[in-house]
Structures are given as structure tokens and as C-alpha cells.
């Protein structure tokens, strides 16, 4: 079964009297609610928020930010003419094989902030090219993000995370992790701040070219790695600080699946929940 619907912003654009915050709303159902669900979002502009809720459907709300189109007179058809097309690719939603796909087209006229509500137990993959923040909340599943410009924030999530941002910081807080799932957090510029369950078992790999790595976890470092500087102030103020040269590996709670942190310009902070 494949459903397709297009939220078109053209109507709003053609009527300058209707001004911002005219949210567009659509609801899509998964074809089989009993099977594992997946949400895939690909956005060119705007910010994306995905939030888990107790319902069974996907609720999409898009707020159009029209850029120069709404301000200028270009939205008005020339005298004696009417619009028959163009500018339409707003937000496109489709469902196939229990995967809901939402994409915003490459046109800057389609710039939109999108808030998506999905059932809590859903795997989520969000890619944003020229947009702003990616925010994911209250989700249990496989979470994947790829952001070019904005920050990635994951709050109250469980499962596994593969997060990348090119120029934004990454802040993630996981309540629990799926055993045996590999995880990775990376960015080029900005800090990576991750909070993990205290009992997590992992083989950690850490790398920053220009930054520090801090943690309050007891990370057992591999002997082959370059000796880091360790400041143990746990008796004084409870802060345990490990400083590495560039990259190193170690284990938490005896080791487990791969847990990778990579940044070029930024600090890595790994907190124990």
C-alpha cells in the first residue's frame, strides 16, 4: 500500500493576506501497526522535530516560512494571468512497507519547520541539508541523524543512536540502550555531549583533533593507546577528567559493542546517567 499526499504551501503564498504560522497538518497511518515502524525524514530547509507520543499514527505539522516569496510581489500572478503550477513541492509524505517518508523539496519556497509525532516505538532517521536544528524526543528505536548546519538534540530516547552533524553540536541523553547495538556520535565543529546509562557495556573509541575529552565513567583504556593525562578529583569534587592526545580506545563495564565519538573542533563530554 502506498499513500502519497502533498502539503502544498502555494495556497498560502498566493494569498498575502494569510500571514505566517498557518500550520499545515496531515495524519498518516502505518500499514501494519503491529510490525516495527520506521520514519524517514529528508529535509532541505527548516527545522525538524520528531516526538514520540502514545498514539498509533504519524501526525505531521508544518509551519511554512516563506522567505522572500511572501514579502515581495512575485507571489501575485502578472495581470491577466493565473498560476497553474510551480512552487508546489512543499512537504511530501508517503507510506510504504511500514515506513513513513517525509521530505521537503529543494525549493526555498518550501522552507518549513516540521513537527512530526510518531508512536514512541519507532525507528527514526532524519537528514537535514541546509536546515536548522534536528530535535528528537521520547523515542525508542534505532535513531539516525545527519545534519549539515544545525544542532542535533536527542532527549529522553532509548535504543541505539547514530548521530552526525557537520557544523552543529550534538546533545544526547539516552535512558537505556539496546544491547549489542553499535553507536556513534560525530561532528566537525561543536561539542558532543552525551549522557549514557551507568550500566552500559561498550568498547569506546574517542577522537578529537582540537578539543578535550571529559567523562565521569570509569573508562578502562587500552594499554596500546597513547597515555592520557588523568585528573582524578573524585574525592574532592567528584570530577574525573581524562585528557587524550588525539584518539584512543577503551572499555566501559568490561566492554561490549562499538561506541564511537569523533569530532574535529570540539570537546567530547560523556556523562553517566
Amino acid at each position: 500500500m502506498k499513500k502519497l499526499l502533498i502539503l502544498s504551501f502555494t495556497a498560502a503564498l498566493m494569498a498575502p493576506a494569510v500571514l505566517p504560522q498557518d500550520a499545515q497538518k496531515a495524519t498518516v497511518a502505518f500499514s501494519d501497526p503491529s510490525r516495527s515502524r520506521k520514519l524517514v525524514v529528508e529535509a532541505t530547509f527548516g527545522s525538524i522535530t520528531v516526538r514520540g507520543y502514545s498514539g498509533q499514527e504519524v501526525i505531521v505539522e508544518a509551519t511554512g516560512r516563506t522567505g522572500f516569496r511572501r514579502k515581495g510581489k512575485e507571489a501575485e500572478p502578472p495581470p491577466g494571468m493565473h498560476r497553474i503550477g510551480g512552487n508546489s513541492p512543499g512537504v511530501e509524505i508517503s507510506e510504504e512497507n511500514n515506513t513513513v517518508r517525509i521530505s521537503s523539496g529543494p525549493s526555498p519556497f518550501a522552507q518549513a519547520d516540521v513537527v512530526i509525532q510518531v508512536p514512541t516505538q519507532t525507528s527514526v532517521s532524519v537528514t537535514a541539508r541546509l536546515g536548522n536544528a534536528i530535535t528528537i524526543e521520547n523515542i525508542t528505536g534505532e535513531i539516525e541523524t545527519n545534519n549539515m548546519n544545525g544542532q542535533v538534540t536527542l532527549t529522553n530516547v532509548s535504543g541505539s543512536v547514530m548521530a552526525h552533524s557537520m557544523n552543529g553540536k550534538i546533545v544526547a541523553s539516552l535512558n537505556s540502550v539496546t544491547p549489542d547495538k553499535a553507536m556513534s556520535f560525530s561532528n566537525m565543529n561543536g561539542k558532543i555531549d552525551v549522557t549514557l546509562p551507568a550500566g552500559i557495556k561498550a568498547n569506546v573509541k574517542l577522537k578529537t583533533n582540537h578539543g578535550d575529552i571529559f567523562t565521569d565513567f570509569d573508562i578502562k583504556l587500552d594499554s596500546t593507546a597513547q597515555a592520557p593525562q588523568v585528573e582524578d578529583n573524585r574525592k574532592k569534587d567528584g570530577r574525573y577528567r581524562v585528557q587524550f592526545d588525539r584518539g584512543t580506545t577503551g572499555t566501559i563495564n568490561g566492554g561490549g559493542p562499538e561506541l564511537q565519538f569523533t569530532t574535529f573542533n570540539g570537546d567530547i563530554l560523556i556523562h553517566k546517567k
Binding site: 534505532e142 547514530m162 547495538k181 553499535a182 562499538e258
Partner: peptide, 11 residues
Amino acid sequence: QSASERLRGVS
């Protein structure tokens, strides 16, 4: 298909 699984494959 899962990126997390592919990461495991790499390790």
C-alpha cells in the same frame, strides 16, 4: 540496511 549493524560489521 541498519547503519548501526553496518557499524558492527566494520568493527
